[in-house]
Design a protein around this nucleic acid. Structure first.
Length: 564
DNA sequence: TGTTCGTGTCATCAA
DNA sequence: GATTGATGACACGAA
């Protein structure tokens, strides 16, 4: 049963909450801000109703009948709102606005639980968060966001409204004592030295908390008028003020459906087994401004026709095959060529054992030399079979007709050894080979050119592969960093949400405690005249608002002085 | 027909 | 100084 439907039992309450909500929605406060405290009060109401005790409104003259005349009309929303709300029912120190203070100041004197910690989360900060998360949505590929946001049981109004992560360290059963101790002391200015030094016993204005007896409790919560009971005019006004600027929903406008849909799409890509590169390509479907288009659609199996033909043709080269055994050992020792687009030259073992680059990213590359397994026959490097540049006419295609330009030149110049040897032999062996033959200057020049071009060709291939590796590594790094950023933003959102919930709990506890307080005559204290304040020892004091105002101002000055 | 890609080649630099 | 590797730039053919 949702909170709205429950509220239908008290239409006046709905109106009032709507008024408050509409006033605050501009400031980013979600309606759920009101929901939690209301939910708690409903529980109390149910409890009281079960006791069968029907009581009057506990705030003298603060029922709806009295409330109505005090309503003011909001110039912006056109809604009515109570005229003299105290700044914040949850304010424990400085949240005691004097009624003579201007509204602006009252806003600043909201609950210390809120004001004291809101500075990092002011409106500007919220917008920065919003923008950050808007960036995050474009890169987010983690599934956790959806899980956190959507996996709440639908029947749980708390989790539904607050989207509380399972591990969010929120104690749902926070007691007043818990709320006033330990962990809150840092964030909430409840335990200021001023508070601790208050002359508790001597001050006649300070009233010790006297727990109401059962009768007064019943008189407090027995009312069926939820508005008058839980949101007395001033308290309602406080809730309004508090929920508005103080408790903006960090997720309110951030994780909208469009964003989550996109995140879900990216999550789906991951869940469907896409690897990071594929996921990144999917992302490029959305945002293709990287300038890096790694075409993975070209599988390594799609060897170009030129490669295939060159491979087959070169493998049948008789001269190459005869020299392969002698040359290959030298190549390995020399560490010649890593990968070879003209991989026709070396057998697979030598290709893999040689220097160069293993085709780690072969699936991303169109380069046909990426996959050694595709190279069934691996003759010599000089048999470059790229048919687009050096191939002979198709009519000349037979086993050893597809030769490179240098091969043709070598044949024309009657070079007595293979281009493979020319290119890949170590310098000493190469010179030794040259010395065995009587070669003309033209032949020697051609041989040196062949060797230079052959080595440079392999170097160019290695260079290109290296460049590709660098690009891919950078792309991977970018993805990792984007993932980290998204994770940190998610954590920030969760922390903000937890903080907001804690504030709401404290606020609710304040309301509850204050509402139960009774003076000597059994009447409740007016929130416009009194406020609760925590002492350093964990006790709670009821102090006049004027004193609380002074405390609040002192608290406000402190951070300013610190900045100076 | 223009673009993109893969490749070979040259020039240059550095080790 | 020669050799070799790396790399930018260019040209070419193929898709």
């Amino acid at each position: 049963m949702g909170w709205e439907s429950r509220l239908t039992a008290a239409a006046a309450d709905i109106d009032l909450i709507d008024i408050l909500w509409r006033q605050d929605i501009d400031l980013g406060a979600g309606r759920e801000i009101f929901d939690y405290s209301h939910r708690q009060k409903e529980q109390d109401v149910d409890k009281e109703l079960q006791d069968g005790v029907e009581q009057e409104d506990t705030w003298p003259g603060e029922g709806e009948e009295v409330l109505a005349p005090n309503l003011l009309v909001d110039g912006e929303t056109g809604e009515s709102f109570p005229a003299q709300f105290p700044a914040d029912i949850s304010s424990l120190t400085e949240a005691v606005p004097s009624e003579s203070e201007p509204p602006g100041l009252q806003n600043n004197l909201l609950s210390p639980l809120l004001t004291g910690t809101e500075s990092p989360f002011d409106l500007e900060q919220q917008w920065q968060d919003l923008m950050s998360i808007m960036e995050m949505q474009a890169m987010e590929v983690n599934t956790s966001t959806n899980e956190i946001l959507y996996n709440n049981p639908p029947g749980d109004p708390l989790s539904t409204n607050y989207s509380l992560a399972p591990n969010t360290p929120i104690n749902q059963n926070v007691s007043l004592h818990q709320a006033s101790l330990g962990g809150c002391s840092q964030d909430f200015s409840l335990f200021s030295p001023e508070v601790e030094s208050l002359p508790v016993a001597s001050s006649s204005t300070l009233l010790p908390l006297v727990p109401s007896n059962s009768t007064s409790l019943n008189s407090t919560f027995g009312s069926t008028n939820l508005t008058g009971l839980f949101f007395p005019p001033q308290l309602n006004g406080t809730a309004n003020d508090t929920a508005g600027p103080e408790l903006p929903d960090p997720l309110g406008g951030l994780l909208d459906e469009a964003m989550l849909d996109e995140i879900s799409l990216m999550d789906l890509a991951i869940e469907e087994g896409f690897n990071s590169v594929q996921a990144s390509q999917l992302k490029e479907e959305f945002d293709s401004d990287s300038g890096l288009s790694l075409d993975s659609s070209h599988s390594p199996s799609s060897l170009s026709s030129s490669e295939g033909s060159s491979s087959s043709s070169s493998s049948s080269s008789s001269s190459s095959s005869s020299a392969s055994s002698s040359a290959s050992s030298s190549f390995s020792e020399e560490g010649a060529v890593g990968y070879s687009s003209d991989s026709e030259t070396l057998d697979l073992e030598e290709v893999e054992g040689a220097v160069g680059y293993q085709p780690e990213y072969s699936k991303f590359c169109r380069m046909s030399y990426q996959d050694p397994s595709q190279l069934s026959c691996l003759p010599y490097l000089e048999h470059v079979g790229h048919n687009h540049t050096y191939n002979m006419a198709p009519s000349a295609l037979d086993s050893d007709k597809q030769m490179s330009r240098d091969e043709h030149r070598a044949r024309a110049m009657k070079i007595p050894f293979t281009n493979d040897k020319i290119i890949n032999l170590p310098v000493e062996e190469f010179n030794e080979l040259l010395s065995k033959y009587q070669l003309s200057e033209a032949q020697l020049s051609l041989i040196r050119d062949i060797r230079r071009r052959g080595k440079n060709k392999m170097a160019a291939q290695n260079c290109r592969k290296r460049k590709l590796d660098t690009i891919l590594n950078l792309k991977r790094d970018v993805e990792d960093l984007q993932r980290d950023k998204a994770r940190l933003l998610r954590e920030k959102v969760e922390f903000l949400r937890s903080l907001r919930q804690m504030k709401q709990k404290v606020q609710s506890l304040y309301q509850e405690v204050f509402g139960r307080l009774r003076d000597e005559n059994g009447r409740p204290y007016s929130p416009s005249q009194y406020a609760l304040q925590y002492a350093g020892d964990g006790s709670v004091l009821l102090i006049p608002r004027t004193l609380a105002d002074q405390q609040a101002r002192r608290q406000e000055r402190k951070p300013k002085d610190r900045r100076k």
